[in-house]
Design a protein around this nucleic acid. Structure first.
Length: 191
DNA sequence: TCGATGGCTTGTA
DNA sequence: CTACAAGCCATCG
């Protein structure tokens, strides 16, 4: 059973500003779970647009302001514990055509969610933990992570220990890792 | 259906 | 150290 999310699933967008950066989250009005998080933007329009483009049926509300504040504290480098249960992991299923197969993207993100605060893992080793050699596809999956910061895709780096790419730019990735206490020299992580 | 495209990796020069 | 090619594989148009 596939639910047409844009037609049925109205999304509540809450946003919050901190130090001139705007954070936003989209919450399904049906499940009450997060469907998407935006990385910080310079203005609120962009922060909201990132979510509304994917979920055109939306309304803005301060209902989840407290939750957005927690996201900002994740960005600030705090080890804020958030339960994965607040994430609407079904957002992957609609894009996955064969329901009998487990979603590769889902597996990648769940595996990434296990990387502890202050630690890193390579795309390669993450793939191998899934019994796969799709190193590159791991990157593509993480690039589309709807829950950055909560699912810490910024902790996934290249095999040569260089930073690698990031949806918010590699500088942001570097910044996030440093705030968690990871030592970085140049563009390389020191273990 | 099929080619193009990546948050990659390894080998070679 | 850098540069480039080839291999890789899920996803997207």
């Amino acid at each position: 059973m596939i639910i047409l999310k844009s037609a049925v699933n109205k999304v509540i967008i809450s946003y919050y500003q901190e130090n001139g950066l705007f954070f936003s989250i989209g919450i399904s009005s049906i499940t009450g779970k997060i469907v998407k998080i935006s990385l910080p933007k310079r203005d609120e329009t962009k922060a909201i647009k990132e979510i509304s483009e994917e979920y055109p049926d939306y309304e803005i509300s301060d209902k989840y302001e407290e939750l957005v504040k927690k996201i900002t504290s994740l960005y600030a480098g705090k080890d804020e514990k958030l339960d994965l249960k607040i994430l609407d992991l079904d957002v992957f299923e609609s894009k996955n055509k064969s329901p009998d197969k487990t979603s590769f993207m889902r597996d990648v993100l769940l595996q990434a969610s296990k990387i502890p605060y202050g630690e890193v893992e390579t795309y390669k080793s993450l793939a191998e933990k899934l019994g796969s050699h799709a190193y590159r596809a791991v990157g593509t999956a993480l690039r589309k992570n709807p829950f950055p910061l909560i699912i810490p895709c910024h902790r996934v780096i290249k095999s040569d220990l260089t930073i690698g790419e990031y949806a918010g730019g590699s500088e942001m990735k570097k910044l996030l890792l440093k705030r968690e206490g990871v030592t970085i020299k140049g563009d390389k992580v020191l273990l």
